[in-house]
Amino acid sequence: MNRKHDNLISSESFEAVFSRYILQQHKKHTCFAREDYVRMMGEYWDEKQEIDFIQKILDDSNGQLKMYGSAQEIYQNLVLYRTFSQSHWFFKDHVFDGYYIEPDVNLSLKNEYVIHKTNIFVMLQTIIARDFPKWESTILRFILSTFLKSEEILAAHVEFVKFNETDFLNMRAEINRLLAVDHRKEEFKKLEEKMSKISYSEYRKMFESLPGIEWKQAHLVRLDIIVKSLYDQKPKNAETMSFLYHTTKATIDCFKMFMNSKPEWFLPNSENKNPLYAVRLFQDGNRRFVMKAEFFRVLNSLPSTKEPIVYKDKPDRLDTMMYEDLVLNYRARIPEIEVGLTDDWKFL
């Protein structure tokens, strides 16, 4: 379960997940509940760092949290607990915190691969994280995460598109081509020369003016902190400053080009000419089931549905329907819907 640097979790996201994971009556025993707690901001943790911090929480609780297990066990449970599509919406993560899940792809019962639209954004982040070590740079992670989540407009939807790995491999190749910076090129030399003389406010404005991001005040405050720490490095490294700006801008440009070429992948089904209607099929041993609310939402969105079925989960409860019951009661409608099981496909 060793995580690579492409799905690190931010300190803020960890706090949100951990606070939802433990029972309400136990929250008072965590460091987060203390008045003198200084919230860590802008840190990204790998597996070891996360386990170390969990151990600090356990030590600080004076044994009040020992029923949750060891730091290693809690870490493993937290990874399982938070690893699902749209988890960042559920935990109300900041828009500038990166995705910390793997991009899952589902295999439908028709033997076709489909992908949750939210996971397309995770896939885009994964491409950068796997191919560019500078992803570990706070400024690159911060701005690209903000851009991707600003573009993600399907928070209330569980929608899929058919997945073609070739599309992503082609985009990955194009990103690599665009980001292959030749420091000897005249254009980059000019940018580097500009960076060596630029003022802090001008440098910050370059990042703030990147297209495709709607900055909110809280984001600008964080941007100011990150850019200033980069600008104030001694000695000033114009090459690094140039590289990070070039990489960030080129990546956003490439993402936007890809999104414009595949609008059906990013827009809600209601705005697509040929939408894919799909529902997730979960499996627990020999039991297979769907989420009732999700199934009826998809069923009601079908053009052939004349009388929508009103269904809503009760608070803090998700009702399910066994697949056998779905087939028995909705056999005639199933051909119109892709039913997808989680598959072990991985994006390399």
Rank of each mutant, 00 (worst) to 15 (best):
M1V: 13
R3L: 14
K4M: 06
H5M: 10
N7A: 01
N7C: 10
S10T: 09
S10A: 10
S11F: 06
R20I: 01
Q24L: 13
Q25G: 06
C31Q: 14
F32Y: 14
E35Y: 09
Y37M: 07
E43N: 06
Y44L: 06
W45C: 03
D46Q: 08
D52Q: 12
K56Q: 12
S61Y: 07
G63I: 05
Q64D: 12
G69N: 02
S70G: 08
S70V: 03
I74C: 08
L78P: 02
T83L: 06
F84T: 03
S87Q: 11
W89E: 14
F90K: 10
K92S: 13
F96K: 05
Y100V: 05
E102C: 06
P103K: 05
P103F: 09
V105C: 10
V105L: 07
L107A: 10
L107Y: 06
E112Q: 15
E112T: 10
V114Y: 07
I115W: 09
T118P: 07
V122L: 05
V122W: 04
M123S: 14
L124F: 15
I128Y: 09
I128T: 11
A129D: 03
R130G: 08
S137T: 07
R141V: 01
T146C: 09
K149E: 00
E151R: 13
E151V: 01
E151D: 01
E151I: 00
E152F: 12
I153P: 00
E159F: 04
E159P: 00
N164E: 12
N164P: 05
F168M: 01
R172G: 13
L179W: 09
A180Y: 15
A180S: 13
E187P: 05
F188G: 03
L191K: 08
E192R: 15
E193W: 08
I198N: 03
I198V: 15
K205G: 10
L210H: 02
P211V: 01
I213P: 09
E214R: 13
Q217T: 15
A218I: 15
L220D: 05
L223G: 03
D224F: 04
I225F: 08
I225A: 10
S229F: 07
Y231A: 05
P235D: 09
K236Q: 13
F243M: 11
T248P: 09
D253K: 14
N260P: 01
S261Y: 07
K262Q: 11
P263N: 01
E264R: 06
E271T: 13
K273L: 07
L276W: 02
Y277K: 00
Y277V: 00
V279R: 00
V279D: 00
D284F: 04
F289E: 10
V290A: 05
V290N: 02
M291T: 10
N300I: 00
S301T: 04
L302C: 05
P308Y: 00
P308S: 02
Y311N: 00
Y311A: 02
D313R: 03
D316V: 02
D316A: 12
D319A: 08
D319N: 14
M322C: 12
Y323T: 08
I334R: 02
I334F: 04
P335G: 02
E336L: 08
W345G: 10
